[in-house]
């Protein structure tokens, strides 16, 4: 149960003890079992949320689905044997894992990008959890920053394109100023400054 002012965004996963909470002004990422390390990301600093679907969920679902089918066939083949219940239990467990995987809609990686880092939240490793967290986190971030309009983004893209063109033009004009013969040759040894730097002397 979270303290007042914090709402849980993601919990622990199979391979990570990291958890994330929505605070009033920060996204709080908590890691560690015996020593809790806390990282705070201000909503005002969050630049983007990224979700990358992965194939591991689909592979697991395929394997568990096939496993359920095979185990069910084996269980039915042993219907009159004492091992029937054991096979059936294993088939049911496999089936539950398969159904759970389908319910979670596959696996994904969820990340939050700021100007200095990209923080991945392992507890949001399924598409269903990631979609739910996206809505919750977006509400908090947009409450602080507002929404980014398509017009503002496209205007920024236009400015960057013009800046790129201008930079290329500058490079071309600078290269042209060197002359058809190319840049002047590097001074050969015999120059004090060149010898000092090559020799590594202070």
């Amino acid at each position: 149960m979270a303290r007042d002012g914090y709402k849980k965004l993601s919990g622990r996963s199979a391979f990570s003890v990291q958890q994330a909470y929505l605070g009033e002004e920060h996204l709080v990422v908590v890691d560690g079992v015996y020593q809790e390390r806390v990282k705070r990301i201000r909503y005002a600093d969050i630049e983007a949320i990224l979700i990358c679907p992965t194939r591991s969920g689909a592979v697991l679902s395929l394997l568990t689905g096939l496993g359920t089918l095979l185990l069910t066939i084996v269980a039915l083949a042993n219907l009159h044997n004492s091992s029937f219940m054991a096979w059936l239990i294993v088939a049911v467990i496999s089936g539950m894992i398969f159904v759970w995987g389908m319910y979670q809609q596959g696996s994904a990686v969820f990340g939050v990008q700021t100007a200095v880092q990209t923080v991945i939240l392992p507890g949001l490793g399924t598409k269903r959890k990631a979609a739910k967290a996206l809505v919750q986190l977006t509400q908090r971030v947009e409450a602080v920053q507002g929404q980014l309009s398509a017009e503002a983004l496209q205007a920024a893209h236009q400015i960057w394109r013009l800046a790129d063109v201008a930079a290329r033009e500058r490079v071309k004009s600078t290269a042209g100023a060197v002359g058809p013969a190319g840049p002047p040759p590097i001074r050969q040894s015999g120059s004090t400054a060149v010898e000092a730097s090559v020799g590594g002397q202070p």
Partner: peptide, 15 residues
């Protein structure tokens, strides 16, 4: 492929 949601901070230059 990534699903990407951007916020106004991504265009900020002062930081």
């Amino acid at each position: 492929g990534h699903d990407v949601l951007l916020f106004p901070a991504v265009l900020r230059t002062g930081g």
